[in-house]
Computed example of a mutant assay.
Amino acid sequence: MTRHRDCGELPPVVALLTKPLPRRPLELILTRLVRQFVERRPELIERLGPTAQVPIAVVPTDLPHAFIVNLDGPRSRIDVVASDQATRAAARIEGPLLILLGLFDGSYDGDAAFFARDIAIEGATQHVLALRNTLEEADLTPAEFAGLSGNLAEIVNRRTGEALGLARRMLGAPAADTHGTPEHGR
């Protein structure tokens, strides 16, 4: 897959430092979070239909690890694998971590990121589109994914947004405008 630009990529030292970290603890944490989230928002899995049972690889180009996402109700899981082992997924979405996180939280529009070549998609793209449509409709926040509410949720969402915004500015990632669409023509 060829991406148009390297903007927004984490420095190579981050990949070097994260490569030896054990993947299993992260896998357990992410799987628990996604199962709890699916339990709280079952309508999203229903909306996914057959896509919920299809493994989708989310591959940050600036990290040595990839995430195989399976959103199959109570059997939902996220496997953390080496980037080159993400081949068992039916579909693959690839790009810098900050851009991928922006797709998840709605800061970036998936179509705009794809056509600007900030992300690449291959395999059974209909499943990536179904996931994107579901995420856009869900209007997720970091706090909601973590199961937080009230004042704590507001603080987590605000601080996460500030941290991601700062990281995007520092790394030259496209800025999200007030409508959540990246500004690619800076």
Rank of each mutant, 00 (worst) to 15 (best):
P174F: 04
S107A: 15
L28I: 06
D109V: 09
T141I: 09
T181H: 14
D109T: 09
V156T: 08
L28H: 02
A91T: 04
V69I: 14
L100H: 10
L71D: 06
E183Q: 14
L101E: 15
L10F: 12
I155S: 05
T141A: 04
L26K: 01
E136Y: 15
P55L: 13
K19R: 15
A143L: 07
T2A: 08
V128T: 13
I56L: 14
L148M: 09
I121R: 14
R75S: 13
L166H: 13
R35Y: 00
R159G: 00
P64R: 04
V58R: 06
H127G: 03
P55I: 11
H179A: 15
A89T: 09
P42F: 04
A176F: 06
R158W: 01
R88S: 13
R24D: 00
V81R: 09
G165V: 06
H65V: 13
R5T: 14
L148A: 05
R158N: 02
A15T: 02
R168W: 06
L140Q: 08
T87S: 12
R32M: 01
I93A: 10
G106Y: 11
F115P: 01
M170P: 00
P74G: 02
D139L: 09
V59G: 02
A57F: 04
K19D: 09
G172D: 10
D79I: 00
R3N: 04
Q36T: 00
N70F: 06
R88A: 11
E43Y: 05
D62S: 04
E154D: 13
E136F: 15
S76W: 10
P96F: 03
A86L: 03
D109Y: 09
N157F: 01
G185V: 07
L63N: 03
P64L: 05
D6S: 13
A112Q: 12
H179C: 12
D62T: 02
R132Y: 13
L171A: 07
G73I: 02
G185R: 14
V13T: 13
R186M: 05
N70Y: 10
T2K: 11
A52D: 02
A173F: 09
P11F: 06
V13F: 12
A167K: 06
I68A: 04
L131A: 14
F114M: 05
T2V: 05
P20Q: 03
E46M: 03
I29C: 00
L101K: 13
V34Q: 02
A124T: 12
L10I: 07
K19V: 00
